[in-house]
């Protein structure tokens, strides 16, 4: 026989007497719910309902950490993809706005005259905005980084460069044909470079998207495992909820409440961390710009600033991670509940 709480019993006994003193049956009737008004005056202070699944049953901190890491990686990837794709658009349009004409010195010809003629022809053709003829000294200077300052260049026939700024869609075919009539002159519209850069940029973007998919899948799996663990730990509670008339949907909603919160938390932390990394990288790159290395970084990634679209992508990814968390946990709960019985 279990211990009996004497105080409670005597209390209930005296109460029992009091109740018996009043109309017995009628009071019981009220007790089981037909009467409503009697106790309206006495209200519980309005407080939020305790969650039906205790937060401690779901290893929340570990899961938030996992989700945060996944969201961070996913956001980083998405941001990088965005960076590469906008940088490559910039390269391509910058390159497309410029063509180069090369004049190789030919034995027995006046190179300066050839350069002048080529420049004149180019200037006259449609779509050309500006023609910048590099002097011999300038052309030589272009080679300096490779050959060094002390190299005696005057004896070597150095090709002369004419930089041409174009706009719209100039007719390179005709121009090239005309220029070809001058020996040693060739037109380079960087088509090969543009194509290669595009291919490379597209490959990087594709790889980025694949990584993004993998990271999102991995976070979905992590959430599925966490949900299963949480369900195993709350089996007793789930049973009781079923027995007192809770539907699968109701129970799934209880889990969802938890996992949505964890997902938002993890996604938020990961997304913010990724944004912080991009902001830091942007600031750092601004400091490098003055250095020669900075020029290269600048050429590759633009200013390394993510832009609104990039930050938008990070926010969307963090949101997607939270959404995946919620949906996956809900589906997992439904699947497991169906497996019960």
């Amino acid at each position: 026989m279990p211990r009996i709480d004497k105080a409670a019993i005597s209390r209930s006994a005296s109460r029992s007497a009091a109740i018996a003193a009043r109309a017995t049956g009628d009071l019981t009737v009220r007790a089981i719910g037909l009467a409503v008004a009697a106790n309206r005056g006495l209200r519980l202070s309005r407080r939020r309902d305790t969650a039906l699944l205790p937060a401690s049953s779901i290893s929340g901190r570990a899961l938030v950490l996992i989700i945060a890491i996944m969201a961070f990686l996913a956001s980083l990837t998405a941001g990088t993809v965005q960076l590469v794709s906008s940088a490559s658009t910039n390269w391509r349009s910058a390159i497309a706005r410029e063509v180069t004409i090369q004049v190789r010195p030919q034995v027995g010809r006046d190179t300066d005259a050839d350069v002048k003629q080529a420049a004149a022809i180019t200037r006259a053709s449609a779509g050309v905005d500006a023609v910048d003829v590099y002097s011999k000294a300038q052309s030589t200077q272009l080679l300096e980084p490779w050959l060094g300052q002390d190299f005696e260049l005057t004896e070597i026939p150095i090709p002369r460069i004419i930089a041409v700024k174009v706009s719209g869609h100039p007719d390179f075919g005709t121009l090239r044909k005309t220029l070809d009539q001058i020996p040693g002159v060739s037109l380079d519209d960087h088509r090969i470079w543009t194509a290669r850069l595009s291919t490379m940029a597209n490959a990087m973007i594709l790889v980025g998207l694949v990584i993004l998919g993998l990271v999102l899948t991995a976070s979905g799996l992590a959430v599925a495992f966490a949900t299963r663990g949480a369900m195993a730990g709350t089996r007793e509670i789930i049973d009781v909820l079923h027995l007192v008339g809770g539907t699968d949907r109701f129970i799934a909603n209880q889990f969802q409440r938890h996992f949505l919160r964890l997902g938002l938390k993890g996604g938020g932390i990961g997304g913010l961390a990724a944004i912080a990394v991009f902001v830091a990288a942007g600031l750092a790159s601004r400091q490098w710009v003055a250095t020669p290395g900075g020029d290269q970084v600048d050429a590759l990634f633009g200013t390394f600033s993510l832009g609104l679209g990039g930050y938008g992508a990070v926010v969307v990814i963090a949101g997607v991670v939270a959404l995946i968390t919620t949906v996956v946990s809900r589906l997992t709960v439904f699947r497991n509940l169906r497996g019960l019985e």
């Binding site: 209390r11 209930s12 006994a13 106790n39 309206r40 209200r43 039906l52 008339g245």
Partner: peptide, 26 residues
């Protein structure tokens, strides 16, 4: 709990629950 899992609003059953709890001495 049985009322809560049915999605009923707490205000709609609070007083009945309290009355019943009193009646059973709790």
């Amino acid at each position: 709990l049985p009322l809560r899992v049915q999605g009923k609003d707490e205000a709609s059953y609070r007083s009945e629950v309290i009355e019943l709890l009193r009646w059973v001495g709790l």
